[in-house]
Structure formats: C-alpha cells, structure tokens
Simulated scan of single mutants.
Amino acid sequence: MTSARRTPQQERDHRRLQLLIALRAFAQAGFDEGAGGHITARDPLRPDHFWINPFGRHFGHVRVEDLLLVDREGAVVEGSGKVNPAGYAIHSRIHRARPEVVAAAHTHSVYGRAFSSLGRPLDPLTQDACAFFEDHVVHHEYGGVVLDGDEGTRIARTLGGNKAVILANHGLLTVGGSVEEAAWWFLAMDRCCQAQLLAEAAGKPQLIEADAARAARELIGSPAIARLNFRPVREHVLNTAADL
C-alpha cells in the first residue's frame, strides 16, 4: 500500500515500523556506538511532532513500543524513556526548516567520522558517489556536542535543500521524504566515504566528469531509487530478526 492510500493512522504505523527496521539495519551495519546516534520520523497525525529512538538503547534491541513521540519543545508525549538532547537539538530544527522531510538520520559511523575530519565534500569517484554529487554540503563549524537549538538551526541552514550534510569532525546526517530514503542515503553515504578513503590511501583517484556525475545522480540519486535500494535491507532485517 502506498502512502497516498494509507489513512493517517496507517501511515503512522508504517513510519514507526520503517523507523524500527532502519534502526536494526544500522545496528547490523555497526553504526550503533554507545548512546549516540538517532533516526527520526515525522508523525503524520501531528506533523510538528516526530518519533525518535530512546536515549541509551542499542539500535538492535529497540522495539516499536520503545519509540518516543516528541513535541516541539522536546517533551515526550507518547512512550516511556529519555530523548537524546543532541538528537532533539538537531532533528527538531531540521524538521521545522524542511516540512517536506519525513525522516532524518545521524550516527557516529566510523567512515563518516573519518571523512568528516577532512572538512570537504565527497568527490564523484564512483557511480554510487554520484548520488550525492551537488546534493550534499559540509557544515564546517564544529562547536562541540550539539546541545542547544541554535546549533541545530545552523546545521539545518547549512543543509538547505540537500539530501545530506557532512558535519565537520562529527559525522554524517541524511534526510528524505520517507524513512527508507533517509536510512538508505546514510548507508550509501557511509560506504562512499569508505570508498574514497580507500582510493585516496592507494593513490590519486580519477574523478567522474561533472556532466556525467549529474546525469548519474538523476538516475541513482532519486527518492524512488533510494526506496528501491532499501527494500533488500528491509528484507534482510525482517528475515534475521526473530521478533519482527
């Protein structure tokens, strides 16, 4: 069933399940580290609220009933648990600035962190990297752990209308018009960071020309392709998680 055919309650249930699947996929990818990292999904019944994973829970053990619904002020209005302060500071401002964004993902993945220390965008080195060509930016201002809304606002401003932002000396953040999109862009971007780090360690990589990179982005950087690529990820999670 497509989102256009779902009732608001059915869409809420769908987004919560996809959020859970994304968290499990991130756990399988090794993106869970301590209490850091968060994925959010805008609530279709109350669009100024969003669902988020509880603070201090391993991605691989979160259940649908553990997800928290947070209001504009950061208060938990459904669910039981605490909200990661940095998660609220960043995601609340992105959801406010980008009403078309349904989901946002940020974790401290190893390759994303390593690449973020370079303070520059990804190059179009591979076909996969072209999905992000001229559709991601670098937020150069590292001001410590993001605990206030002002820094979240600055990140949202830097992100602009792009699908991703590299937070210098911090990591990656991706957004999408669905949970599937935001999650896939994060998974793909982290692997692109890995590929570029490996290529540059081995020698001087050859870049794809700008026109070819743009043409590739139009094909593989679309929301529909992100949702398509997330399908096998979802299938793997559903077939390996005994409780789903």
Rank of each mutant, 00 (worst) to 15 (best):
V146S: 04
L219H: 11
A215C: 08
R227F: 15
S117Y: 14
V101E: 04
L167W: 06
E100N: 09
I21A: 13
H38L: 04
L68K: 10
A226S: 07
V175Y: 12
G81V: 04
H95G: 04
L19F: 13
F50H: 03
V76K: 13
A114T: 04
L45R: 13
V76Q: 14
E180G: 04
L69V: 13
V146H: 03
N53F: 14
T153V: 10
R15D: 04
R157Q: 15
V138C: 00
A199I: 00
S116M: 13
R63V: 05
A89T: 14
R57Y: 13
G56Y: 09
D71Y: 06
V101F: 08
E78N: 15
D128P: 07
V110F: 15
V64S: 06
F50A: 00
L172C: 13
E141Y: 07
I94S: 06
E181D: 12
G36I: 12
D128L: 13
P223C: 05
Q9D: 13
A241Y: 07
A114F: 02
E33A: 14
W184T: 02
P47A: 05
A103M: 07
T2C: 05
L67Q: 11
G221T: 07
R231D: 11
S92N: 14
D123Y: 02
L197R: 01
K163P: 02
P223W: 10
A129Q: 05
R98G: 02
V138M: 00
H136Y: 04
E209I: 03
D66V: 05
G143P: 00
T126K: 05
R42K: 02
H49Y: 12
